[in-house]
Design a protein around this nucleic acid. Structure first.
Lengths: 104, 104
DNA sequence: CTATTAATTAAGGCATGACTTAATTACCTA
DNA sequence: TAGGTAATTAAGTCATGCCTTAATTAATAG
């Protein structure tokens, strides 16, 4: 929980997650999308992995990273339920679908 | 967005939000719940207020703080939609209700 | 007006986070 | 096995964050 919010506090790390939400990428492919050094990106990936937000798999010479969607969704939604009324997140997040389902 | 995630990166600040989710409190009442100094708590409140997660109102000698639920819920859910498939958060957050509605 | 309480601002210390370059590890290919 | 690429680890710098105590502002009570 603490690690997840710390990981999300960095814009660079949130961008990495955004990239990984579209496709699995190697460390090098991720680094190429930023202007900071490769070791710096590697450190960010390490933070994200320690928070359980991404996982890595080494295939040959490359390390492939992918998003762990469940952990992100569960942590944020869990926190939201804790602090906000249960009904609100549902409405905010997919108001259209909820409305449709509630009406039907 | 950046400010919200920075604000949430601190355990102390998340605890403050948790207290405020139960009741409106004065700065002093909040400070009394922590072991750190009152100025330290004041700084945390300032961070939360700059992030738009709480608002304050001075009444006489006291400053009352309360949670801004909408901003917290909208920011986290908005981010979640951006990074995770739209359908997932709904399932995670209220699986029972979603299942019931989907089945019915 | 003076004293007291609530709260914030100011100033400074210390730990932590983010970045850099250089070195190292691991894997692939000629 | 020597050389090259991918990636991480190591070491050190610089900025930022969180905490402290002391000073200040603002409101209430005598």
């Amino acid at each position: 929980m603490q690690r997840v919010f710390e990981a999300l506090a960095s814009t660079t790390r949130r961008k990495i997650l955004a990239y990984l939400s579209k496709a699995e990428l190697t460390a090098g492919e991720i680094a190429a999308r930023f202007e900071i050094s490769k070791p710096a990106v590697s450190q960010h990936l390490s933070v994200l992995e320690n928070a359980g937000l991404v996982t890595s798999e080494k295939r040959g010479q490359y390390v492939h990273y992918r998003l762990v969607e469940d952990n992100l969704a569960n942590t944020l939604n869990g926190y939201l339920q804790e602090v906000c009324p249960v009904s609100r997140p549902l409405k905010v997040e997919s108001a259209a679908k909820a409305a449709r389902l509630d009406d039907g």
